[in-house]
Every structure is written in structure tokens, then in C-alpha cells.
Design a protein around this nucleic acid. Structure first.
Length: 308
RNA sequence: GCGUCGGUGGCAGAGUGGUCAAAUGCAGCGGACUGUAAAUCCGCCGGGCGUAGCCCUACGGGGGUUCAAAUCCCUCCCGGCGCA
């Protein structure tokens, strides 16, 4: 049985993934699955750069607005919903196009990463949170010495999660990979100065489109400063503005900086995946050509193509 | 013009005779990543090199005191404040 072909458009923020994905969907009969950890939340629209109904241009988008901003959405939710969406799209004989910048989500979905079935245990987390990283290491050592070898022993988030899994399963199982799909990974990126410029322009554009008002509305709808801080990037900074700690002007500057740092983190993540084929956002035709070749190819032929 | 406080690394800001290439934060660069991945975490960060070390140049400019100065003295330049 051949695995279904799917296309992923990924890369750092502000490189035009969304619009290229829409163009691609138009050309090859696709539907889009957004892979953005914050666009899954309702109401986080302008600051996350969520595509508007109009921009969608009739192309169905999945995994947008599927969670309440007060709730915690996780990779597991993403994979679950993503697989469902892919199945539906395939049933309609359309091409699933995953588009977004959350590398962890994309990898988990595409590579069929099977995470241990241990949902977050809030009480345990709250309790462990009080401990120092050192104490957490000690605790994990008693539970699972093997996992201890690979975790970042300074990172409490990782340690707590490892302990959480080990406490319920006895140990932390290795992540299994299931080869469910036949993916083509298209990466979009550009030179530093160009990307910085793009981020800056985009931030200003969002300010014009009511980013500040959106933050205010979210707060009035009881999205706490704390939650905004956790949602990161622009929301973290917008919360500072709402609290009166910084001016709008400062906020814009800081957002551009935060986005740039984020873009670099994304690059670091994607860099290690040699299967990604990189393009400049301008190379639309080349991407379209590449994708249609991929879609027409037979399974094995494609692995040859990607060696070029 | 007089008085006064101050001028420290890209920025902010400690340090006020030796342990200082100089705390800390930010920015910058690199990296990690098993259900918070928006988050979280780590390394580097005056310059040079063979980077657990060595060399050079450094705390506004110049001069001096001292075995030794970012730290004390003199002088000049610049900024804030006060008085004229």
C-alpha cells in the first residue's frame, strides 16, 4: 500500500508561508492544515498573523481556531486533530498542505511521532515546579536513569515532563516513529537583513490592523496577563503595554526583536532536518513546479528527485 | 562664569587602590528540544590565537602619585543639575 503524499511548507516566521500555501493549494487542489501553535486559539488573530477569510481565497483551512485561549493546547492535540484533518482531505481526494512554523508540531505529525500516552498532570507539575532543577534531576535519577542521560538537566520543563511520564509508566519510552505519509518538505527562508525587514514591516502592519485593540479585547475577555505572557512573543509584550509598563512604540520595537529571536530558534530547529528543500519566497514558480512533480511522481521516484 | 554630580564594554548599569577584560540585565551570535514548543533551556559575547590557556588594547583625553589605578591627585574635553 502506498503512503499518501502530503506537502509541508515550513520555515521561520515572516517568510510568507501562508500565502504560498494558498497559492499552492489553488494550483494543485489542496487544503491547508495550519501548523502554528498559537493560531489554534480563537481570538488570537492579528498578532499571530492568522489568515483572513478573504486571504484564504476559498481554500479550506484546518487547525485554526480549534482551542480556547485559556486552555492548554499541546502537540498531542495537534497530531490528533492533524491526522483527522489529513484523513478528511485525502477522502476528498485533495492534497493536504501543512503550512506553519511550529517545527515540533510538523515533525510530530509528519513523522508520525508516537508520544507516550501520558496527559499532563497539573497537580504533579505544580508540586514539581517548586523544586530546583537539581532536585528534579535527583528525582528522575531514581525513576529512569536512562532518560536522565538525554534530558537537559538544567531545563525544569523537560525534567518535569520526564518525571511525569516515568511516574505513570515506570520509565520514559523512546519515541516511536510511524511512516504514515510520504511527505515533501518545502522550506522558505531568506537572508537575515531581508527577514529582519520583513518582520519589522509586518509588525507595523499588524499595529495598523488593530493588534493593540485585540490585546485589550482579549484582556477584557479575561485572558490574564499571566496567560498572555505564556503565549509569548507579541502577546507577552502586549501584556506589558496593557499594564502600562511600556509605550506602544517600545512595544513595536520589542516585538520585532522577539520575532527575530523566534525566527532564529525556528531556523535552528529546521536546520537539522536535511530532508527540507529550501527556497526563497520569491521562487514561487520553482516551488509549484517542484510540488507538482512530487505529486505526479511514484513513491520511489521521489526519493531520487529529492537527491538533486 | 562659579558650584556640584557624573563620564565604565553595542546599550543600561555595578565596581571606587591589587583577587578586573571588569558583576548583572538587554541586545548580538551559536546550540538544545519525547504532550507548555507561542514556551523552556544551554554556551559564547573587547580584539587576536593552537580558546580549561596565552598575547595585545582597555574603564572620556592628557599628565602624575604608587610596587600596583576603572578606582587617588592635577589638567583638559563632554553631559546633568544648582547658582548667577
Amino acid at each position: 500500500m502506498t503512503r499518501p503524499k502530503i506537502v509541508a511548507i515550513l520555515g521561520p516566521t515572516a517568510t510568507g508561508k501562508s500565502s504560498l500555501a494558498i497559492l499552492l493549494a489553488k494550483k494543485c487542489g489542496g487544503e491547508i492544515i495550519s501548523a502554528d501553535s498559537r493560531q489554534v486559539y480563537r481570538g488570537l488573530d492579528i498578532a499571530t498573523g492568522k489568515v483572513t477569510e478573504e486571504e484564504m481565497n476559498g481554500i479550506p483551512h484546518h487547525l485554526l481556531d480549534v482551542a480556547h485561549p485559556q486552555e492548554q493546547f499541546t502537540v498531542a492535540d495537534f497530531v490528533h486533530l492533524g491526522e483527522k484533518a489529513i484523513a478528511h482531505i485525502l477522502k476528498r481526494e485533495k492534497v493536504p498542505i501543512i503550512a506553519g512554523g511550529t517545527g515540533f508540531y510538523i515533525e510530530a505529525l509528519i513523522d508520525g511521532a508516537l508520544f507516550p500516552h501520558v496527559p499532563p498532570n497539573e497537580e504533579l507539575r505544580a508540586e514539581l515546579e517548586k523544586l530546583s532543577a537539581q532536585e528534579l534531576v535527583k528525582r528522575l535519577a531514581e525513576l529512569d536513569a536512562t532518560r536522565l542521560e538525554t534530558v537537559d538537566t538544567k531545563n525544569k520543563v523537560r525534567l518535569i515532563r520526564a518525571i511525569e511520564i516515568a511516574e505513570t509508566l515506570g520509565s520514559v519510552p523512546a519515541v516511536a516513529r510511524g511512516e504514515k505519509y510520504d511527505p515533501l518538505r518545502i522550506g522558505l527562508d531568506m537572508p537575515d537583513d531581508e527577514l529582519r525587514e520583513s518582520i519589522k514591516a509586518r509588525t507595523e502592519e499588524r499595529a495598523r490592523c488593530g493588534m493593540f485593540d485585540e490585546a485589550k479585547t482579549l484582556f477584557e475577555n479575561s485572558l490574564s496577563y499571566e496567560r498572555m505572557n505564556a503565549l509569548g512573543l507579541e502577546y507577552r509584550i502586549l501584556a506589558q503595554w496593557l499594564k502600562g509598563e511600556i509605550s506602544k512604540e517600545d512595544a513595536l520595537k520589542r516585538i520585532a526583536v522577539a520575532d527575530w529571536q523566534y525566527a532564529k530558534r525556528q531556523r535552528t530547529w529546521f536546520k537539522r532536518d536535511a530532508r527540507i528543500e529550501w527556497y526563497h519566497p520569491n521562487e514561487k514558480d520553482a516551488v509549484i513546479k517542484r510540488v507538482s512533480r512530487f505529486l505526479q511522481s511514484t513513491q520511489s521516484a521521489d526519493s531520487v528527485d529529492s537527491m538533486e
